[in-house]
Design a protein around this nucleic acid. Structure first.
Ligand SMILES: [Mn+2]
Ligand SMILES: [Mn+2]
Ligand SMILES: [Zn+2]
Ligand SMILES: [Zn+2]
Lengths: 139, 139
DNA sequence: AAATTAAACGCAACTAAGTTGCATTTAATT
DNA sequence: AATTAAATGCAACTTAGTTGCGTTTAATTT
């Protein structure tokens, strides 16, 4: 069933069903927190080439399959988009929690994001709420 | 007066009053948006050494004088902390706006952040609201 | 004012993240 | 089976950020 969903996801986004890209999506779907490039590489067996991995991350993000999690350190982390995002609309309505101890990042669906259209001259198209603290494993 | 404030800031944080660090704080105080390492380097004349600049950014952040702005791209941006932050308490109550056109990042004081203590097992110590869209200059 | 001390500086060398170009392979289409 | 464009893999590159270490200098002590 997950496999079905993955194949459909690739099909509708016109991404070819290669072993690596299927495996990559499986990894994302089986991980409840955000993954860095390094995390991904460790969890994958069908390739170890960084260019290949980066290109997959880039196109998945562009197509709205995964999204970057905003953070304050240098390494990007990616997580699967829980709602139906697309190349055009990449809007989420969930917050992200970053554990300051283990550095894991989680998507948190329990919180309603404040919806803001306009603030003093700014045109707001998207908003991200990032929470920091201790995750269940580290408390 | 700004100069007074800068000197006091350095004094209370036990940071030596070197020409560069004073200049760096002046730059931050005179800029209404977040600055990357590169931005800083361009605006500074007393040194061009990256190690010196990075070390100042790091210690200023640690002392609660400046803060990193959460983002989804690879370069960190720093902005001055508008409230009285310290080494112990680095808590802000303002959002950040990132312009998707000019990439400038602004601190936005107009928005009240939702204060969240606990969500499903997570212990929340800090929260960051990041807004994306068009800034006044780019609208 | 001179001596002391630790913070700050500056340079070289390094690590890690991420990108670009290009030739080769392969999934999907005809 | 032939075609084609997407995907892969390797080398080489760029940029962000760090580490080690010797030198300088701001601040403190005498
Ligand atoms: Mn998420
Ligand atoms: Mn700010
Ligand atoms: Zn944790
Ligand atoms: Zn702008």
């Amino acid at each position: 069933m997950n496999k079905e969903y993955i194949l459909e996801l690739l099909l509708t986004n016109k991404i070819r069903k290669t072993q690596f890209r299927i495996e990559l999506l499986e990894v994302f779907m089986n991980t409840k927190y955000g993954l860095s490039f390094k995390d991904v590489k460790e969890r994958i067996s069908s390739t170890q080439d960084k260019v290949t991995i980066y290109r997959a991350l880039t196109i998945f993000e562009k197509k709205g399959i995964i999204h970057k999690v905003p953070n304050t350190n240098d390494v990007s982390k990616y997580a699967i988009c829980p709602e139906a995002c697309s190349e055009k609309a990449h809007q989420h309505n969930h917050a992200h929690f970053i554990c300051t101890q283990c550095e894991k990042t989680f998507c948190v669906d329990e919180i309603e994001l404040p919806i803001l259209k306009k603030v003093k001259g700014y045109k707001i198209k998207r908003s991200n709420l990032t929470l920091e603290g201790d995750c269940p494993d580290c408390i």
